[in-house]
Design a protein around this nucleic acid. Structure first.
Lengths: 108, 108
DNA sequence: CGCTCCTTTCGCAATTTTGCGAAATCCGGT
DNA sequence: ACCGGATTTCGCAAAATTGCGAAAGGAGCG
């Protein structure tokens, strides 16, 4: 792969400009994406169950501001304990996996 | 499934005696198993990579006693941040999933 | 036994996360 | 524009996790 295909995807352009070939930044990016992913999962889990933050908070045994904080993509302080509390309140369990990086891109 | 098959599996017997039909205890059990699972995964990941606790600790940027603590099945204080540090040191990434409980048993 | 390396346990300080209420912001619906 | 309800942000105290060295426990080996 020598030459790049043109793209109009902003995310892609930004990626090329700031991260490509910069290991340190790539690590930060991975971190950021991971947090974003957790935040989003919690958000989806909650809204998918038709609950407001306050309602979920009550089920979990905390307050709405705490839930809001966990749904914030920039929050990095997730603990397994808290994630499990949320999971349990929604009849889920937390499953954890260590997957090899540099894996071939999945088909889907 | 009306009647039980006899068993000689100690774990199974203990399970029947202390947990079966006791929701509260079952919650504790789930918790304990989850922690055990995380501890074991870390242990397997490390030994699978042929590393001692001290070596992994160095890669992660901490000390052996910390690694030992994380591989202790009774330890409950895992944070996503620490799990990610370990994952990264071993070229993995942490994947998190909230799976419905009471799910049909998987074939494999 | 003595030696070495690995792992576990202990204590405490340092850092980080959680708890939580108040106030600000956002967002429809009327 | 006004009114709730929902979400976000702010600030601290309380609680929990991490950092880390020292000491104790094992296991293997000559």
């Amino acid at each position: 792969m020598r030459k790049r295909r043109p793209t109009s995807d902003a995310t892609e352009i930004i990626h090329r400009r700031f991260y490509e070939g910069r290991p340190e930044r790539l690590a930060e990016l991975a971190e950021a994406e991971a947090n974003d992913s957790v935040a989003r999962k919690i958000h989806e889990l909650r809204t998918g169950s038709g609950l407001t933050q306050r309602e979920l908070a009550k089920l979990v045994g905390t307050t709405a501001s705490v839930i809001s904080r966990m749904e914030d993509a920039n929050y990095e302080g997730h603990s397994l304990a808290m994630l499990r509390r949320i999971a349990r309140a929604l009849n889920r369990r937390v499953e954890l996996r260590f997957v090899r990086t540099g894996e071939r891109k999945k088909v889907a």
